[in-house]
Design a binder for these strands. Structure first.
Lengths: 183, 183
DNA sequence: TTTGATAACGAACATAATGTTTGATATAAT
DNA sequence: ATTATATCAAACATTATGTTCGTTATCAAA
């Protein structure tokens, strides 16, 4: 990819991030992004069709990074399933989120939380599906999966709201207790 | 209040509701509301400052109605706590939501659900606090309560997304199983 | 280092939605 | 019947979105 494209793309992302920390997604105009990123109007539209697509792409970038180890370690070797239990996986994920603090998490706890959460949940669904034993069987699968994903996402939101002061291991502990998971 | 005001106010609410059933809040224009309600532009703006405020007012209307029984039955007589277990209470609540189908469905769709969920969770927190046995004790109280409230709200959202085709009793069953609650 | 390709620029433009102002008309309260 | 005011329609200002186009700057490859 052309260096120029990389440069403007990342300029847009950074500008967008800065704005998202301050105001709600809906109240951010394209013009503000242009000013903050210091790029031309037509340039923006040659990269993203709409503001929504910008958010979508930014979210996938972030989560691809946060979930990268998780997913590839799972799909590449089979034995990793026994290597890493759900507890370790969750802990690992929380550490990643903690690392990403500056860029990303202001958004998640901030005003545009729901939009961000939607993408987060997509990734979480894929994750939990790799741990069939976590999905209770005396309840419809979709319902149980939705419960796991939703409650974990809520737990993370709460944790972030509490400034992540509880250690990841402990959060994982609490969560697994509440969903009745025994490794 | 002037009859004329009542008339247009309710005309706006009804029109808005009809539109919310068909399309997403964000994609509804004021013009469409005007056409559907058959009122003048300036009339709308003499009632509501923005489209968001219209949604907000409609939400409070709905919740005042849906939760009225719950709240008054709890605060008025003490014995109701022993009369109704958590299972019955949840079932009751779900039936109320189902009655409000049209309204709730529209309001909950997409990002419009944010407001709905916030109000909903406030009520739910109060509700779960009346059932101390539902809050697991080997986990910080705030974490556990957040889990109950968040996961129930998610379950309801899912249920509504599924057109409420599962009977309330069954949803209550599933949910209580997942949080490990034994009446 | 030259050259051909293309990304970025910026200004102008079309389109669409929001919200305001106006003075005339209709309807309510008393 | 009179007074107050809600509604109306139409025009208007404003703001944001997304597109177009000719120019300029930058890149990658020979």
């Amino acid at each position: 990819m052309d260096r120029r494209q990389q440069k403007t793309r990342s300029a847009i992302f950074q500008a967008f991030n800065r704005l998202l920390e301050k105001k709600h997604f809906n109240n951010i105009t394209v013009q503000e992004i242009l000013d903050e990123a210091n790029i031309g109007r037509s340039t923006f539209y040659s990269h993203f069709e709409t503001k929504d697509e910008l958010l979508r792409e930014m979210c996938t970038d972030i989560f691809d990074h946060v979930f990268s180890h998780e997913l590839c370690s799972e799909t590449s070797h089979d034995f990793s399933l026994s290597d890493h239990g759900l507890h370790e996986k969750i802990t690992h994920l929380l550490y990643h989120l903690k690392d990403n603090k500056g860029n990303v998490l202001g958004v998640l706890s901030g005003e545009s939380g729901e939009l961000f959460m939607r993408y987060f949940k997509e990734y979480l669904t894929a994750m939990f599906e790799q741990y069939p034993e976590s999905i209770k069987r005396d309840v419809p699968r979709e319902f149980a999966l939705n419960h796991l994903v939703g409650s974990f996402a809520e737990a993370v939101k709460w944790w972030i709201g509490e400034k992540m002061k509880i250690p990841p291991e402990e959060v994982a502990d609490y969560y697994l207790k509440l969903i009745g998971y025994s490794s």
